[in-house]
């Protein structure tokens, strides 16, 4: 019997500068589904003074040839101005923000607060039996914090997805 084959894949962070027009997000997200590419995270926000340009950051994974195709297919869309593969370009910064709600009392509550301090998470809401932490960092760091909180009464997690930028003085 025939089996479906799996291919080796790598993680890439892409930033896409686009015209801020109706349907652009659907166009880009839809391109990924239509061609069978993966989206691990996607963030989008207006970045220009006159609200005409948005920047989208997509974290994706796939074999190198597929990553190259994703880049080319995105470039082909008329409202897309620029696509930068941060992973390909080299030294870059990746940051993600998370809100993490933890409920508990006694030792668990104290431990949660102590760990939050270690991770430089900020308390943005509290009750006598809960905290909401705000945490910024690489996706890995957030993963680790969330997994620690799981033992201490994790209630809810919200994450923004990654935004990224090249290091150095130049625009990518």
């Amino acid at each position: 019997m025939m089996k479906i084959k799996q291919e080796q894949s790598e993680r890439h962070v892409l930033t896409i500068t686009v015209d801020n027009e109706a349907g652009i997000l659907a166009k880009i997200a839809g391109l990924f589904t239509a061609r069978g590419y993966n989206i691990d995270s996607l963030t989008v926000a207006d970045i220009s003074e006159n609200h005409s340009i948005s920047r989208i950051t997509i974290v994706t994974h796939g074999p190198p040839a597929v990553i190259d195709q994703i880049h080319a297919q995105l470039d082909r869309l008329v409202p897309v101005h620029k696509v930068v593969d941060l992973t390909e370009m080299g030294a870059h910064v990746e940051r993600e923000m998370a809100l993490v709600k933890v409920a508990g009392t006694g030792d668990a509550r104290v431990e949660a607060l102590r760990l939050a301090d270690v991770f430089r998470a900020k308390v943005v809401d509290t009750t006598t039996s809960s905290f909401v932490f705000e945490l910024t960092g690489t996706p890995d760091k957030i993963d680790r914090f969330v997994s620690l909180m799981r033992e201490l009464g994790l209630v809810e997690v919200g994450r923004t997805g990654v935004v990224g930028m090249m290091r150095g003085a130049e625009a990518a």
């Binding site: 166009k27 839809g30 391109l31 239509a34 869309l77």
Partner: peptide, 14 residues
């Protein structure tokens, strides 16, 4: 129409 033709057009406009 825009949704339906999004991936079979070079570009589309509403």
């Amino acid at each position: 129409t825009i949704g339906i033709t999004r991936h079979c057009t070079k570009h589309n406009y509403l």
